[in-house]
């Protein structure tokens, strides 16, 4: 555990500067738009831009960071250190996954915090629509958690694609992209093949869980997870496969 934590701390420390930099830029941008809107230079609708721009940019940034955290190990030759460590490959990958999830959480908090801080007034209309603060917190948490789950799987696919591309060693960008396509296809196959095994799972009535009914009694939002179980299992399998390949087959640059 101590070793794993060291790896996490190392990756967190490595991502500290870029995350702080982006968070700072975002908050400054929001404050700037708020200032312009407050003094009438810009139309109040520009406030939407201040929130939408980071929200649209952050996913791209996070995808890039997932790739970059691995790439930099090779570019800066620190992969020598990683490959020489007597730790399972999956721990190295998990440490990167955890630190990227922390990065995601920070950027999520910056978006939510910055929006509340600078554009709280604009939310008045939204507040009147929702039932309570606890409702917002509850559903906000699930939005965060769903985003985290999606992003985590994305990281796993990027890690697998990157590691396999390193094993091939040539035209690595194209190989990584192709591995991504093949891995997604395999996961989809797993989902289709395993779905009948999980038909017995109950349909989840998300509209009740998320209390969407409180917004409008006519909302029905149901999810039958059978089709996604295979996808999740395949993603978990890919994660451990990546760790195994990293530990046993990946090489330094030569």
């Amino acid at each position: 555990m101590k070793r794993f934590l060291k790896l996490v701390l190392k990756d967190l420390e490595g991502s500290r500067l870029p995350t702080l930099f982006l968070s700072g830029i975002t908050l400054v941008f929001m404050a700037f738009v708020r200032y312009k809107v407050s003094f009438g230079s810009w139309h109040s609708q520009m406030s939407v831009l201040a929130v939408a721009l980071p929200t649209a940019f952050f996913p791209l940034w996070l995808i890039w960071r997932s790739f970059q955290t691995l790439r930099s190990e090779w570019r800066e030759d620190t992969v020598y250190t990683l490959l020489a460590l007597p730790v399972p490959g999956w721990q190295v990958m998990l440490a990167k996954l955890v630190s990227l999830c922390v990065e995601y959480s920070v950027l999520f908090a910056v978006t939510v915090g910055g929006t509340s801080l600078f554009f709280g007034g604009l939310l008045d209309e939204l507040w009147s629509m929702v039932s309570s603060l606890s409702w917002v917190v509850w559903n906000g948490f699930w939005v965060y958690a769903a985003g985290l789950a999606v992003y985590s799987s994305l990281i796993i696919y990027i890690q697998l694609a990157f590691v396999v591309s390193k094993m091939v060693g040539k035209v690595q960008g194209l190989v990584a992209l192709w591995v991504w396509v093949l891995a997604s296809w395999l996961a989809d196959k797993a989902a289709v093949l395993l779905a009948p095994l999980f038909r017995w799972l109950p349909t989840l009535r998300l509209h009740e869980f998320l209390r969407l009914n409180e917004l409008d009694s006519g909302i029905v939002f149901e999810w039958h997870p059978a089709g996604q179980i295979g996808l999740v299992l395949a993603t978990v399998a890919f994660f451990f496969l990546t760790g195994y390949l990293f530990e046993h087959y990946v090489e330094i640059n030569e």
Partner: peptide, 13 residues
């Protein structure tokens, strides 16, 4: 095939 997600909003009263 059956969809895994069903989302529906009835007209607001």
């Amino acid at each position: 095939g059956q969809p895994s997600v069903r989302f529906q909003v009835e007209p607001s009263r």
